[in-house]
Simulated assay, not measured.
Amino acid sequence: MKVLFIGGTGLISEAVSKLAVRRGIELYLFNRGERSEHVPHGAQVIQGDIRDSAGAAEALKGHEFDVVVDWIAFTPQHVQLDIELFAGKTKQYIFISSASAYQKPLKHYRITEETPLANPYWQYSRDKIACEQLLLEVHRNSGFPVTIVRPSHTYGNTAIPAALTSWQHPWSLIERIRKGQPLVIHGDGTSLWTLTHNTDFAKGFVGLLGHPDTIGEAVHITSDESLSWNQIYAAIGEAAGREPKVVHMSTDFIAAHTPAGTADGLIGDQAVSAVFDNSKLKRLVPDYEAVVPFAEGIKQSVLWFENHPQLRTADPAWSAMLDALISKHGVDAKLLSYYV
C-alpha cells in the first residue's frame, strides 16, 4: 500500500508513521523537512509546503497514492486545496478532525460518532466541523473518498498532558510540581476526561488505512480509560515524584482572569466530561485495544524528558500567569467569605 502523510512528524502522526513503516506500508511524508529527526527509517520524504498549492502540485507530480492523510489541515481552505490536489489521485483521503467538535454541552455523557457536532466556544473546533461538512458534501456530490478521524486528547513521550498548561514548554508543569508550586484544576476536578497514548492511537489508525468501509464515515480513536482531572494530576505528580499542590477554581473564573484565548480549549473541550464509545472503531479494526494506562504513559513521558535535558525548558510567563491567577482567586475567596 502506497500512503502519503502530509506532515507525519508531529506528536500523533510520528507514532503512526513508525507503525505504518513497521507494518510494511510504503510511506511517503510530504513536509518542509524541518523535523527530519522524527522521520522513521524506511519512510521517504518529499520536501515541500502544502500551503503552496502550485509548488505542492509540482513536487507530487507523477505520484498517485492508495491513501492520503493530511495531518495539518485546520480550515476549509486547507481541505479545499487538498480536494483539488488529490481528486482522482487517491482511493482514500483521511481528514484529521477533532473530538472537540462534538456537541458542547453534551445531551448524553457517552460520545459516539452519532453525537451531533456543535461547539460554540472554540473556533478551532468550529473550523474542524466546517472542514468535515465540506468534505462530506464533496463526497456526496462527486464521490471524493473521504474518511474522517477524530482524535481526542492524545499524548506521547514529548508531551505532559494537562488542562491549563504550557503547550510549548510542557516540562514547566513538572518543574512547578517539584518546586512545590501549586497548579490549577478547573471545577472540583471530578469531571471525567480521556487521554490516549499515541502508540495506542496508531494501532487504531493504521487499521483504517485503505479500509473500504470507512469511506464517507467518521471514526474517533481514543482509550477506553476515563479518569477524573484529580486522578490525572495525581498520576502526573506520582510520575514527577511529588504530590502536586492544586487549587480548584471555576472555569469561568479562569477565563475571566487569564489573557484572551488562554482558556478557549478549556471552555470548549476539557471542562466538559468526555467518555467515548469506541464500538465503531473496534468493528472496523477488531484487534484494536488501548493498552497504555495513563499512569504508565505519563511515567514514560517524564522519563523521556529526564533523558533529554535540553528539552526541559521552562515557561516563566505561563508560571507567572498561574501565580497571578491563584493570587486573584485567593483574594476573591477571602472577600466572598467576609461578605457571606
Rank of each mutant, 00 (worst) to 15 (best):
E225F: 11
L336N: 05
N141H: 11
Q47I: 15
Q270C: 04
Y93L: 10
Q168F: 10
R51H: 12
F5L: 09
D287G: 14
V246H: 08
A163K: 02
P212D: 13
T214N: 09
I215K: 13
P170I: 14
A159G: 00
W229P: 10
K280G: 02
A118Q: 03
G42A: 10
T147N: 05
W122P: 00
Q231T: 10
P212Q: 14
T199E: 11
E64A: 09
I174K: 01
T165Y: 06
E217W: 01
E137Q: 15
T196G: 07
R176Y: 03
T258F: 14
P170T: 13
L19E: 03
I83F: 08
E58I: 05
A163G: 04
L164K: 02
A57C: 13
A15H: 01
H308V: 04
A255N: 09
P76D: 15
F253I: 08
Q44P: 01
V285W: 01
C131K: 07
L322V: 07
N31E: 00
L192T: 03
Q123A: 10
V68M: 10
L284Q: 02
G237T: 04
G330T: 09
D252T: 13
L266A: 08
Q168L: 11
P151L: 11
I221A: 04
L134T: 13
R176I: 07
D264I: 15
K179H: 04
A263M: 09
H169P: 00
M249F: 12
G261W: 14
A239N: 07
S17T: 01
V292D: 00
E296M: 09
G156D: 13
L135I: 10
S100H: 08
H139S: 10
E289G: 12
D52F: 08
L209Q: 06
A159R: 02
Q181I: 15
A59H: 06
D252W: 13
N198Y: 04
S172T: 11
V184I: 12
G55Q: 03
L164C: 04
T194Q: 06
G24N: 11
I177A: 09
H197L: 08
A218K: 02
H186E: 01
L192Y: 06
N307F: 04
P309V: 07
A54C: 13
T258M: 09
H186I: 11
W304F: 06
Q123P: 08
D287K: 02
I72T: 09
W171T: 01
G189E: 12
R150L: 15
K203A: 05
Y288A: 05
H139W: 14
T147Y: 00
S273P: 02
Y28C: 13
L208K: 01
A202T: 03
T154N: 09
S13R: 03
K280M: 08
I236S: 00
P40H: 05
I185K: 05
V146M: 06
L135Y: 08
H329V: 08
H197R: 07
N157Y: 10
S191V: 12
P259Y: 10
D66M: 08
G297K: 03
K299L: 10
K128G: 03
